[in-house]
Write a protein that binds this DNA or RNA. Structure first.
Length: 887
RNA sequence: GGGAGCAUAGCUCAGUUGGUUUAGAGCAUCUGCCUUACAAGCAGAGGGUCCGCGGUUCGAACCCGUGUGCUCCCA
């Protein structure tokens, strides 16, 4: 077979994915093996996968493939999330832009038809991307949070929680999204610091109530008579909703206003002056306007003082009739106009810049409006308790724990009730029916609601849908139908799942709530480990965003580099929990790595074409190489297992990379490489193939396609790598590993000397080695000679020609050559080494001559220091000898 | 304002109960190589006040305190 010069991923990837599918390798059904289960964090059907998903999906595929190859019944459930508010916003936008349709002109059913079309389109794009990335998900288990059974589960849970008294309906201050025109949960609001303005506005006192003020105490106005007070506000457009003004009871400046009334500007409404400790004397003018409908603190003060609520905003953020003026104008337009009018009427005293925090809707990026609204809520306290317990007890382990345990704990200890109703159509419609008198009946179906309602009254269903997270929190249960068909075979087998891999940004939205739902409905944690990935940022550390255009297209990257290289690139520099600075260079590195593997395979196969039947002895050159690599491989396998058990995937990949590139390709293959035009012995060849098998197996979870391809090209096979089971890693002999290291060091030292003295590679040299242990060179001397292009190695003769003297470890090596040698350069290098070693020796001597060290340190430590001392001394001796021979 | 995390080579990061060296890797850089697997390669090298200061200890990149800077969460 002709093999291409370089590795070409495209054809290979498609071929193997199809093959794996046809063999049902991704499929999992309950059996007597131990399950290893992952449920995918369902991507929103709002668009395509971004780099954050790519990282998460890759991590999950690595874990699931590793488990599949380690004897587990591996099950990875794919799916997607209807993402209520985000998707509805996109669909509304698309309808307007592409079809000129306004949502309000559609019926609920018509709108949902369009939404389902959207879901079909983007859901499929996402599934295709997951496939192209090589993810080994069980495609027979695809779940969508609005599938019929899933919908029923959500409804069932709502009714159940309602009946348990954990869900209630009531008027509360919530965050309102004026663009999506829906309530939001507290978690869906993101706060940003912005520079706003503080407007100082005159409120006149009601004329009959003018009073004398103390000039000294009122720092603002020095009139004999107080005719007005000045109030600072960031939101002049809400003054029409004012129901009082409020000062601190200890503020002497305003003490004389007790029992007085002021006039709200522009609408000339009289409101009382009240007093409350809440007011900060030092902020603004020390007196506040109270607008209970539009500020949570004002709302609380209003409750305390029994004040009315005047809501001056419509649901789309325009001013309502209650505002009396600028009715129908957008809140921000109205603000400008009101400021202008206040200015004209001489009621605006001043404006100043002010940095404040504004809440933005996570989905539409609109400024969220605090609003009193009747919504459905979940009481979170009771649900939080067991969810907190499972994490603090270590039943659910969070990685990296040091970073997130505290955050998790804090949120659950301070959790507030969750607003779950949304004024949208795309989602599970709330199963609550109202009769003509406003009585509410919560039931799974209309029929059951009717049974609950006494008499023959007309029932109408609540129009609202549920927060998308109210469905997502059931994900690890309901993908196995644990709610709709409790105790079925799947849920009993797969639950609790093994590990959840997700972004740290949804720890409250999703992770904490899944644990709550799991404890409530399964009485057991939903997963044993949570692996938080960091955020993927660009090279400069900026968030990936469409606006910046720094978010690369996944399919494009796969096309350019191959899926394996994309997986490699994103994994090689992503320690758990740390943000990842995405750089296409690392994908290129992955591509080069593919090519390296490919060429190593070509080389080995080439040898396979001309074998000779001989047997090797371990003392032989190749024998040493085989022996050394076998031990090295087992050492790395042990390390990799440990790292992967601790979710240190990036570290594991780095070690495998170096094992393949450095140890296998650069050292081992060179050591066993037959001389030009010569043959390789059959048993070394078959050993090499089996090493290669183990290498691609080790790498397979990270780079599945090329490893499967190479596995099949190395040899005719009946099995596939994807399901090949790992054997147990064997013990390794550290003495042989040490011998290998010594060999590598000597080779490197000689090559370095050649390089420094401009002895070209083709130039044949002679080596003279002064060693205490000549025997140790027996198995390695042929390798040494070939790797340094030495014609001979002797242990006794002194060189006839000029020579270079170098020291590697304790070994003194003389390089004999016909080329003239620069003695000064040699001396310089030797002196540098000598200097280092003397400093080193000095530091050890200091330690050993310190009585307190000798008394306090552990015996092993002291022993080690003594050994280091002897070591350093003999190295120094060797260097000094070399130096003296240069004189 | 409260809390958490981080600070090690130009960049990204390892450094697992304080002692295996006077701190490692990858990438980048520099030097030399068109060696018949791979120039997407080979060989070699240089590069560090482990953020500053103070403390604990025989011994600190690691533990404690403090300052500075960055990131995130919560209000």
């Amino acid at each position: 077979m002709d093999l291409s010069k370089n590795y070409i991923p495209a054809a290979v990837e498609e071929k193997w994915y199809k093959h794996w599918l046809s063999k049902n390798y991704f499929k999992s059904v309950p059996n007597d093996r131990t399950p290893f289960t992952i449920v995918i964090p369902p991507p929103n059907v709002t668009g395509v996968l971004h780099m954050g998903h790519t990282l998460n999906e890759t991590v999950q595929d690595i874990l699931i493939r590793k488990a599949r190859m380690s004897g587990f019944n591996a099950c990875w459930v794919p799916g997607s999330d209807h993402a209520s508010i985000a998707t509805e916003a996109k669909v509304v936008d698309m309808l307007k832009r592409e079809k000129g349709i306004d949502k309000k002109d559609l019926s609920r059913e018509e709108f949902l038809k369009y939404a389902y079309e959207w879901k079909e389109k983007y859901g499929n794009i996402i599934y295709n991307q997951i496939e192209r990335l090589g993810c080994s998900v069980d495609w027979d288990r695809v779940s969508f949070t609005m599938d019929d059974y899933y919908y029923k589960a959500v409804i069932k849970v709502f009714v159940d929680l309602y009946n348990k008294g954990l869900i209630y309906r009531g008027a509360r201050m919530i965050n309102w999204d004026p663009v999506a025109k829906t309530a939001l949960s507290d978690e869906e609001v993101e706060y940003k610091d912005v520079t706003g303005k503080l407007y100082y506005i005159k409120y006149y006192l009601v004329k009959s109530e003018l009073s004398v003020v103390n000039e000294e105490n009122n720092s603002i106005y020095n009139s004999q008579l107080t005719t007005h007070i000045v109030i600072a506000t960031q939101r002049p457009e809400t003054i029409m909703g004012d129901v009082a003004v409020c000062a601190n009871p200890n503020d002497e400046r305003y003490a004389n206003l007790k029992g007085k009334k002021v006039i709200v500007p522009l609408i000339n409404k009289e409101v009382p002056v009240i007093f409350d400790d809440y007011v900060d004397k030092d902020f603004g003018t020390g007196i506040l306007k109270i607008t209970p409908a539009h500020d949570i603190n004002d709302f609380n003060i209003g409750l305390k003082h029994n004040l009315p609520v005047v809501d001056t905003l419509n649901e789309d953020g325009t001013l309502s009739k209650a505002a009396q003026i600028y009715v129908g104008e957008d809140r921000f337009v109205a603000r400008k106009k009101i400021v202008e009018e206040l200015k004209q009427k001489g009621l605006l005293v001043k404006e100043e810049e002010y940095i404040t925090r504004l809440g933005y809707s996570q989905r539409t990026n609109a400024v969220a409006e605090p609003k009193i609204s009747t919504q459905w809520f979940i009481k979170m306290r009771e649900l939080a308790r067991p969810a907190l317990q499972t994490v603090t007890s270590g039943e659910v382990k969070i990685h990296p724990g040091e970073k997130f345990n505290a955050t998790y704990k804090y949120w659950l200890e301070n959790v507030k009730d969750w607003c779950i109703s949304r004024q949208l159509w795309w989602g599970q419609q709330i199963p609550a029916w109202y009769d003509e008198d406003g009585n509410v009946f919560v039931a799974e179906t209309n029929e059951e609601a009717k049974k609950l309602a006494t008499g023959n009254k007309q029932l109408t269903r609540d129009e609202d849908v549920l927060d998308t997270w109210f469905s997502s929190w059931l994900w690890p249960i309901e993908v196995f139908k644990g709610i709709t068909e409790p105790n079925n075979k799947d849920i009993n087998y797969y639950y609790p799942t093994s590990v959840l891999v997700t972004g740290q940004d949804i720890i409250f939205f999703w992770v904490a709530r899944m644990i709550m739902a799991g404890m409530e409905y399964m009485h057991e944690k939903p997963f044993s480990d949570v692996y938080f990935t960091g955020m993927v940022r660009d090279k400069q550390g900026r968030k990936m965003s469409k606006q910046l255009g720094n978010s690369p297209d996944l399919l494009h990257l796969i096309h350019e580099y191959g899926a394996d290289a994309v997986r490699f690139g994103i994994m090689i520099s992503s320690p758990a929990g740390n943000d990842l600075l995405f750089d296409e260079n690392s994908l290129e590195q992955g591509k080069y790595f593919n090519n390296k593997l490919w060429n190593a395979m070509k080389l080995v196969k080439m040898w396979g074409e001309k074998l000779e039947v001989t047997s090797y002895q371990l003392q032989d050159t190749s024998g040493f190489a085989v022996n050394w690599f076998e031990n090295r491989l087992n050492e790395v396998r042990t390390t990799v297992d440990n790292l992967m058990n601790q979710f240190q995937l990036s570290e594991a990949l780095k070690i495998i990379y170096s094992l393949i590139w450095d140890d296998f390709c650069s050292w081992y293959l060179e050591w066993i490489k037959p001389p030009f035009e010569e043959k390789i012995s059959e048993n070394i060849y078959s050993k090499t193939i089996s090493f290669f098998d183990e290498l691609v197996q080790l790498l397979h979870p990270f780079m599945p396609f090329i490893t499967e391809e190479i596995y099949h090209l190395l040899k005719e096979r009946n099995d596939d790598l994807i399901v090949k089971q790992f054997s147990k890693a064997k013990e390794f002999n550290s003495e042989i590993l040490q011998q290998g290291n010594t060999l590598k060091e000597i080779i490197t030292a000689i090559r370095d000397a050649r390089h420094k003295h401009n002895i070209r590679q083709k130039e044949i040299i002679k080596l003279h080695i002064e060693t205490a242990d000549e025997k140790q060179y027996e198995p390695i001397k042929n390798i040494l000679a070939r790797q340094t292009n030495a014609g001979s190695i002797s242990f006794s003769t002194t060189p006839a020609n000029s020579f270079i003297s170098i020291v590697s470890g304790k070994e003194k090596i003389l390089i004999e050559t016909n080329i003239e040698i620069d003695t000064a350069a040699q001396k310089e290098k030797l002196l540098k080494d000598l200097n280092y070693l003397k400093g080193f020796l000095n530091s050890i001597d200091k330690k050993l001559s310190n009585d307190r060290f000798v008394q306090n340190a552990r015996a092993e430590v002291i022993e080690l220091e003594r050994k280091k001392k002897l070591d350093a001394e003999s190295k120094i001796h060797a260097i000094e000898q070399s130096l003296s021979s240069l004189e």
